[in-house]
């Protein structure tokens, strides 16, 4: 048995298992990111449009949607995951493994991302929206050709932050047997005191977050025109 006192020789690390877990983490992150972007964009745009002094100003719709978003955001991920287990089972047929963790990940990340979208859209110059209206743009034209386009750097930054958040959520989903690096760290590192496995998995998570943030920053810079 290895331990901190004896120095670390990585004797417990089974690399094929590590790679599989890394793959699982990447897949969970990517799949839930895709759904999160899809739902979050829609909800974020609706939040923005229905808010005060915007194109579709609808105080009641905004109020209700905003409340739901706030509630979902205030429940800690680990509890949310357990709370929505029946829904997860309904959608994927299981609450375990990679598939089982995607619904809770999406439910947790979507409200977060939607708020970031709303904030990015608020940054769009009102004058530009007005100019588009003066040119005869419909509301849909404005969403598609003005709002989403003008806020592109902000949206890319929002995707980056969300992707990083999802990585840490995937690690947490290990607690209920979600698979991936978090699962590995928990099962070997915590339950069997295999510190070397813990260090490798945490190291990989750090690398993953670094890569995501760097790529995100590069994209944001590439699309900034100011």
């Amino acid at each position: 048995m290895s331990g901190i006192g004896k120095g670390i020789d990585f004797e417990n690390v089974r690399w094929p298992e590590i790679w599989e877990a890394t793959n699982d983490t990447l897949f969970m992150m990517a799949a839930s990111l895709v759904f999160t972007i899809l739902f979050g964009l829609i909800i974020g745009v609706i939040l923005f449009l229905t808010s005060r002094r915007q194109l579709l100003q609808q105080p009641i719709v905004y109020g209700v949607l905003s409340l739901i978003v706030n509630i979902l955001r205030s429940v800690p991920f680990i509890i949310l995951m357990i709370m929505i287990m029946p829904v997860t089972k309904l959608i994927t047929g299981t609450t375990l493994g990679v598939e089982g963790s995607i619904p809770p990940l999406v439910v947790a990340a979507t409200p977060f991302f939607a708020r970031l979208v709303e904030t990015s859209l608020r940054e769009v110059d009102r004058g530009v929206i007005e100019a588009a209206q003066a040119m005869g743009a419909s509301k849909w034209d404005i969403v598609r050709r003005v709002l989403l386009r003008e806020s592109r750097p902000g949206l890319l930054a929002a995707v980056t932050i969300t992707a990083v958040t999802l990585v840490s959520y995937t690690a947490m989903s290990g607690v209920i047997g979600g698979g991936g690096l978090g699962d590995l760290a928990l099962r070997y590192g915590y339950q069997r005191f295999q510190t070397d496995v813990m260090i490798v998995t945490v190291g990989l998570l750090i690398v993953l977050v670094q890569v995501l943030q760097t790529v995100g920053d590069i994209l944001v810079r590439r699309f900034s025109r100011k």
């Binding site: 110059d125 530009v128 100019a131 003008e150």
Partner: peptide, 18 residues
Amino acid sequence: NQRRRIGMIFQHFNLLSM
């Protein structure tokens, strides 16, 4: 449709920055 017959320019230009 009618607005297309009426052009408008602004003090702060209001161009699409992207």
